[in-house]
Amino acid sequence: MTVVSVLVFAMLGGGVLLALLRLGLGPSLLDRVVATDALLVIISAGLAVYAALTRNPTVVPVLVVVSLLGFVGSVSVARYIGGMLSDTADDDRRADPVPEVRP
């Protein structure tokens, strides 16, 4: 029991540290978005592991909120970068004039 909890939290903590490192280093904005997404997923996994190991169901609603927030955050930042893209002109222009719906 104790061994399992130490192992699980050590692995989750290692994952969080490496994702934070990528969040700091990441050369572009999209790397940081991917790292933030993974970070939120690992945080929700940590909450679920805590709830499971202590048989304490009070943190489970927080889990729903965290997973919702991760989705909304990554999608909104991706749409924001897409909006910057449509300002900077022909990044995706093709050779044939395909009518294209931009986000």
Partner: peptide
Amino acid sequence: CLLLGALLCLTAGLGLLRFPDV
């Protein structure tokens, strides 16, 4: 199941740090 899931989280961190592009 918890151990396997935590191991996947660790590999996600490793891959995020070591892989070359987005």
